[in-house]
Each structure stands twice: as C-alpha cells, then as structure tokens.
Design a protein around this nucleic acid. Structure first.
Length: 482
RNA sequence: CGGGGCGUGGCGCAGUCCGGUAGCGCGUCCGCUUUGGGAGCGGAAGGUCCCGGGUUCGAAUCCCGGCGCCCCGACCA
C-alpha cells in the first residue's frame, strides 16, 4: 500500500530521505513563511528532552536563566565592528509599529550579545559582581539564503549563554567548561560523537576572540557544527562599556563568553542515527522509550491484551521508563509497528494472547532484533535494553565516523580525492595561511572544521602543510559541512 | 542572487502539448467483516484548478504580468 508512505532510501537521495523522514515521523512541517518551520509535537518533544538535560547541566554549573527581549535597537548591532559585519546582512528589521514608522528601526535578534552587554553594563560595577553566569532559551532570526528543516531555518530555537568574568583566564575556563558540557550532552544523550577544537579565524564567531566548536559527522559524511562556545575577550565589554572596579582598586573591562546550541541538534540526531525506516531516537531523548502494542482476535482477547498493555505501561512508568500503550485506533498492529519505527521509538513490546498465556511479551528493538521477554521484572529488562541501545548507538556512530576519517593523507592528491569522493574528516597539517584555507574550500568545498583538541590529534603532529608543503603550524580537520 | 522543478479536494498526483461536463490514489466519515508486520467490501462528504488581466460562444488548458514553495549552488548555527 501507499508508496506515498515510503521514505526515500538514504543511498538514493540523502536529502530527500531527510525531508521524507521528518514528514513521516511528524517532526516538523513547512510553514506558510519561506524558510520557517512548524515544529510538531513529536519533534518538539525531542527538543524538550534536550532542553531539560542541558538546562540541568547549566544549572549544575551555577548558571541562571533570564530572558532578554526579541527586539534590539539597530544601532546596538553596529557597536562591535566585526559583529555588525557578520550579522547585519542576515537580520530582519522592523521599521513600523502601531501603524507608524519607528524613529529607530528594531532588529529582530540574530543573537543577543548586544542587548545583553548593554544590560551587563548597568549591572556590573565591582569585582564582587563577577562572574555573571547567564543563559536564555529563546528564538532568534537569521535571514539565511537557503534553509533546511532543523538544520538552518529562518527562525530557530536555541539557548544562548552569556557570561562575564574578571579575568581572561576565568573566561577561558568558562568557554572550555561549556564546550565540555556540550560534548558530554552530545555523546551521552544524543549518542552523537563529536570532535572538539578551535575554529580558525575565518570560521570564528563575528566579534569573538576565539571560537570552539563540537563537530559531528553525519551519515552522508558531511560535518555538522553542533555547538559553539566563544571566548569574546573584552570586545563586547569595550563596545558596551562593561567595566568593573578590581579588587586592587583599578578599573577594567570584563572578559566575557557566549555559547549556544539550537534546534539544529534535532537535525543532527536525525542524520546521525536515522535509517531507511525512519528516525532512530536514542533512548535518553525519546518521547516514548517503550510502546506496548496489544494484539487480539476475539473481543475477549482484545479486552485482555488491551488491559494488560495499559497495566504494563503503568508498571514501566512507575519504574521510571517513558512508556505508553498503543490502544486501538483502527490501525492494525502492523501499521502501528511501522508508525512507531518511523517515529524512532527505541523499544516496542508486542502483547498478544499467546504472549499473555506464557506471561511474556515480544520485545522488538528499533535497532534490530526481536525476542520474547518475561513480564516479571519487565521494567529492569527494559531499562537494561535501553541502556544497551544508548551505548550501542554511540559506539556505532563513533565507528562510522572513524571509518570515514582519514589521518595524515600521504599527498595533496589523496587529500583532494578523499574530500571529493565519499568524504569525511581529514586530519592533516596546515601552515595557518587563511589564503590556503580559502583555496582548499574553492577546490574541494571543504572547510577546516576545527583545529582539534589534544585528545583528537594524531599521535604524531604532521610536519608539513598538506597544501603548501611548508612546515605545519597545526593539525587541522577538514570536511565538507552543512 | 544564478540554475532546475512545481502550484489542481486534507496529502500525493493525472489532465495542460491539441480549449468543450474536473479525474485517480491515499486519507477522512458511515456500515459490516477483519486484526501475530501498512485489512477487505459497500456507501458518502470534500475543489476560488496560486493570483490578476487578456483571447474565446466556452479557459485548469492559449497569451501577458505577478506571487509562492521545494531542490541544487554562493552566505550561515
């Protein structure tokens, strides 16, 4: 039945697969406004799980949530030179309100540094006021030329952290602390392994001293920048006059950071784990970790299996598992299985008369495999299965990434061939010249994703630049990226 | 902004070349039969054919002008 329900296989057209999956899993839909998306309940549920986990981590490290307004005076953006250059072209501007032309146009925030530092200036007087550790969950607007559901939409949801510190060292420590939190979240919750490292000058945030990022590799071997943490130095502090009296009695500008992850992560989740049947959602982020599907022939069997499904659902929930029975709505169980698979539910428990008779259920994993399990101690069994799946997904993703990574290409040709064929991460020496970076991008469409942190670097630092043959300043990782 | 594709019941499409009663599949609703991997039969509802002009006895179809969306590139989380 219905070809229309089929998802285009990844191998045939990855981009069509991605779009089909989002529709089939009912994660999001296109809005009437170009480039904007409606996040549907199934998609939003994943975002909510992400928010909860991240928010807990931020709070645990002393951050507080606040909320700053959507509108920013246009002049604010202009105060930091690099910042305005980076963001002005992609802002939406409100020129009218209440039927009248505004005296000063308002920018719809593309990010909130400017409005936040203007307030920090008021709030921070003394070294005793520092550090300020703030975060906000909000929407921002960037008028991108080309958009894709979750990965790049005109409006998107994110969190943006903004902190102010007394010393450069404190700001640096904060920048790295957040990078670590992001990494931990991506690996432990999303089961998405990432490289962490420093961005090059050409890739860093507009207005930052330096930018660190988490880089993941998608199933089509393109990289996804999954989160960034910026050390802003004193750039914004100077632009917005955020000064404080030091303990020694002097006057200094604060050192600040900003950092963010967005609904793009949902796109990363899809492209890391999804398969041709739909979404595969890591258990820790799944809206429903286990669904119980009753099966019957007669009315008596229906009453029995539906009743048991409800009871088992409640029992699992009592055991801390997000479980729900899928009671009749006119769909046959086969249709239900396929729908839950498309949505990415990690586990399915099939409950028919034969299972009930043997006090068992069929447990089917979204990642493959199906077997009978005893109803006694089911919550423990399910918890074990979920944990194993969570670990398995991370391991599989890491293995895939490594299988598509090339360390130390022997020659420039090998480097180019790798990027031009299947692609993936290439680790190689880099002389540090921005012009070389640009040339490589021109020729291969690949960019330096990051200068990897120590643990990701090759055992031996490359001696020469893969492009110029000159002595290498650093090891860099290249890939084509979203 | 350049290239490509497309606008027709809720969704996916045919019909457009060659003007003549607006169709098909899925979904929806009602009924009966079904239910261990996308159920079957019978009945029913549902359309400003993207918008505006023009040609014509007559336009989804031809002509002119708009608008919108998706995909591929350049910009970016």
């Amino acid at each position: 039945m219905a070809e229309s329900k089929a998802i285009t296989p990844r191998a045939q057209d990855f981009s069509a697969w991605y779009n089909d999956l989002i529709q089939r899993a009912e994660l999001a839909d296109y809005s009437p406004v170009r480039g904007c998306m409606v996040i549907r309940p199934n998609g939003y549920a994943i975002w909510e799980q992400m928010q909860r986990a991240l928010d807990d981590m931020f709070k645990a490290t002393g951050h507080q949530n606040a909320y700053f307004p959507l509108f920013i005076p246009q002049s604010f953006l202009a105060r930091e030179a690099e910042h305005v250059e980076g963001f002005a072209p992609e802002t939406a501007v409100v020129t009218h309100g209440g039927g009248k032309e505004l005296e000063e146009p308002l920018v719809v925030r593309p990010t909130s540094e400017t409005i936040i530092y203007s307030m920090f200036g008021k709030w921070i007087q003394s070294w005793r006021d520092l550090p300020v550790l703030m975060n906000q969950w909000c929407n921002v607007v960037r008028w991108e030329m080309r958009t894709r559901l979750f990965l790049r939409t005109t409006e998107f949801l994110w969190q943006e952290g903004h902190t102010a510190h007394a010393t450069e060292a404190d700001a640096q420590a904060e920048t790295l602390q957040i990078l670590g939190i992001y990494r931990r979240f991506m690996e432990e919750w999303m089961a998405m392994p990432v490289l962490t490292g420093l961005k090059t000058e050409s890739e860093k945030f507009a207005g930052a001293l330096r930018t660190y990022s988490c880089e993941a590799l998608m199933q089509d071997n393109k990289a996804l920048q999954a989160g960034t943490s910026h050390h802003l130095g004193q750039n914004f502090a100077k632009a917005f006059e955020v000064q404080f009296q030091t303990a020694e009695g002097g006057l200094d500008y604060v050192w600040s950071t900003s950092w963010g992850v967005s609904t793009r992560l949902v796109g990363g989740l899809i492209m890391t784990h999804g398969d041709d049947r739909g979404l595969v959602c890591p258990p820790r982020l799944a809206q429903w970790q286990a669904v119980v599907v009753p099966i019957w022939r007669s009315d008596e069997e229906k009453a029995a299996t539906c009743g048991a499904a409800e009871r088992i659902g409640a029992e699992l929930r009592a055991g801390g598992i997000r479980a729900t029975p899928d009671l009749p709505e006119g769909l046959k169980q086969g249709a239900k299985y396929l729908a839950w698979e498309a949505r990415g539910a990690p586990l399915r428990l099939e409950l028919g008369p034969r299972d009930l008779a043997s006090n068992s259920a069929m447990l089917a994993r979204r990642t493959g495999g199906k077997e009978a399990v005893q109803l006694d101690g089911l919550a423990d069994t399910v918890r074990r299965e979920l944990d194993a799946m969570q670990d398995g997904l991370l391991a599989a993703a890491r293995e895939r990434r490594e299988a598509h990574s090339l360390r130390g290409p022997k020659s420039k040709d090998e480097f180019i061939d790798f990027l031009r064929s299947d692609g993936g991460f290439v680790y190689a020496g880099f002389c540090g010249e921005p012009s070389v970076e640009a040339e490589i991008k021109e020729l291969t469409k690949a960019t330096i994703r990051c200068l990897p942190d120590a643990e990701f670097r090759s055992p031996e630092k490359p001696a020469t630049c893969i492009w110029t043959g000159k002595p290498a300043a650093v090891e860099a990782v290249w890939a084509r990226a979203y």
